[in-house]
């Protein structure tokens, strides 16, 4: 029983990290129809800068950890906003070129991180409490898992509140629904594009700092590795659906954890098979609109 609890809770924790990456991807795709291959790079930059700041301020203090989360979010947001303004907006409405540009940026940025921080993984240290465990129902669960779950839930709540109750949130939701109509009403959707990238980048940056503590390392490839699972999550959840992304993140992570433990480390295959099944039965994803 304790095994199951452990796997379930850590699975939800992993799902939380997937969600932080996938939420931005899904929003960006929903509004702009851009598959952002550079999204993992936002995460990696957040993780590295968070690590550097935490080391300067004292890695084992709570202030250091909090500031590293903040710096991660800001770094991801700034990088994402810059990407949108400088590269993606130049190719307005040319979706394939936009994808290609983000692919190029992903390659170039990973190589740059290699040059700056080296290819070897670096190991972040956090407050001592993070690496300790809490016992629930006989299972010793690492505390970082709870932090990841709470952070992801907070991000989900914040984004949902923003989308539901602010003017810009309304424009974004309307844009996902019918972009041509929003433009026809005289609203400049391009600001909404930058905003969506910024929000996605910030979520990815937070995800980066949390992922570095969750997995215990940061390497230049960290983001791009997570990105592939985030893609799978967004397809399963339904492109453009935030709630779909949240549900699919947890589903995918739980499946991965349980299959890894009970089915001889086949978690990654189980996820791909789930993807194939979802596509065969519901090509638009669990919560996607009918294509």
């Amino acid at each position: 029983m304790s095994e199951v609890i452990l796997l379930a809770v850590t699975g939800v924790g992993l799902g939380a990290i997937y969600f932080l990456v996938a939420s931005g991807l899904s929003l960006i795709y929903g509004l702009m129809h851009v598959l952002n291959f550079a999204h993992g790079v936002f995460l990696t930059l957040g993780a590295f800068l968070g690590l550097e700041v935490a080391q300067r301020l004292g890695a084992s203090t709570w202030t250091g950890f909090a500031v590293s989360l903040l710096v991660g979010a800001l770094a991801g947001a700034a990088f994402a906003a810059l990407t949108e303004r400088v590269l993606v907006q130049k190719l307005y409405n040319r979706h394939i070129e936009q994808v290609l540009v983000t692919v190029g940026l992903g390659l170039a940025a990973v190589a740059l991180f290699d040059g700056i921080w080296g290819t070897d993984p670096r190991f972040p240290r956090g407050p001592a409490w993070l690496s300790e465990t809490t016992t629930i129902g006989g299972a010793n669960i690492p505390n970082i898992v709870f932090v990841a779950i709470i952070s992801a839930a907070a991000v989900l709540a914040a984004v949902v509140l923003f989308l539901k109750h602010t003017r810009y949130g309304m424009i974004i939701r309307a844009g996902v629904e019918n972009r041509a109509m929003v433009t026809a009403l005289g609203i400049d959707v391009r600001n909404a594009f930058t905003l969506v990238f910024t929000i996605g980048g910030a979520a990815a940056g937070i995800g980066g700092v949390l992922a570095s503590h969750h997995f215990g390392y940061v390497s230049p490839m960290l983001g791009q590795t997570l990105l592939i699972f985030a893609f799978i999550v967004t397809v399963i959840g339904g492109l453009g659906s935030l709630i779909g992304a949240a549900v699919a993140s947890v589903l995918v992570a739980l499946l991965q954890q349980f299959a890894n433990f009970y089915l001889w480390g086949t978690g990654d295959f189980a996820v791909v098979i789930l993807l194939a099944l979802v596509l065969l039965t519901r090509p638009s994803g669990l919560m996607g609109r009918k294509a």
Partner: peptide, 28 residues
């Protein structure tokens, strides 16, 4: 046959996922 059920960007993601499964397999 499976991945051609979708087109455009979803097709890109699905093919990526299949290749990733192969990549994981050879590394295991």
């Amino acid at each position: 046959a499976v991945s051609l059920r979708v087109t455009g960007i979803p097709f890109a993601m699905v093919t990526l996922a299949f290749a990733q499964a192969g990549f994981v397999l050879v590394r295991k």
